[in-house]
Amino acid sequence: MSSFSATKRNTRARFFDRTATALFWGIGILILLVIFWLLYTIMHKGLPNITPQFLVKLPEEIDAGGGIGPMLFNSFYVLFLSLIFSVPIGIGAGIYMAEYAPANKFTEILRICVEALSSVPSIVFGMLGLAIFAEYFGIGLTILGGSISLAFLNLPMLTRVTEEAIHAVPADLRNASYALGTTKFQCIRTVVLPVALNAIVTGVCLVAGRAFGESAVIILTAGLSTSGEMWDFSLFAPGETLAVHLWYVQSEAIVEDARQIADKAAAVLVFVVLFINMVFRIPLWFNNRKLKR
């Protein structure tokens, strides 16, 4: 066909290429299988045995058959409070970094702060919460302390997702809005934020999912116990969450069905995190389709 004839080197290179391609495919598929096996293991061991009572019942100290009611409630309560504290500030900071920050040394320092804060290990935030709330204010291990410490952990991530979402808004839209004589804030409120909302909500959901499963911070700041009641909205009650309960059951509990409780708790935990990551995006997805039409 052509005058090209393969030398030994060509043949070898082609052989390596084929082998490597097969190897890359192999690794890709292997990792997919590992991930699915992981999810299957978590769900399969826990989900089939979960009854509605398990989700609302009080835990038992000694007898089998306890539930995870207060912990599940605390998980949502702490998550909710921490988002209340962190979302306004995180989004505000993100807006500042994306819209206002001038290109100078000061902004560089702010940016280093955000990145440094997002790299701080969660255990360190836990110790900070312990130092502030248990030692400095002396209120002990509480839901309030836990949720504020968790809010610290969320802050840099929220700032980053907001900044990225706002950077993705085309400059044309802003210019058009300025041309109509809007002030900077009017432009942000009526043009930039609505366009970026989709990405911001997605980002907040990812952060919420991570915060829901966070345990190192909560162990140190909200403790290993609950107030022992369901629907306890007190801010100063100890606030063991589901993720912490999984740790407690596995390491310290003496109930005979600890293993089953842990299996079920893990399944609920993963299920809720995936749920948070996906379900809150569905309205946005519909919204998008409407916009595209």
Binding site: G92, Y96, L110, L117, V120, V124, L128, K184
Partner: peptide, 24 residues
């Protein structure tokens, strides 16, 4: 006001970092 608020937010973030470093 809102420009002030946004600046306050980012400074609050730096304050948290300072808190971490100082307390620990």
């Amino acid at each position: 006001l809102f420009k002030g608020y946004f600046l306050f937010s980012i400074l609050a973030l730096c304050f948290v970092l300072a808190l971490v470093i100082i307390f620990i």
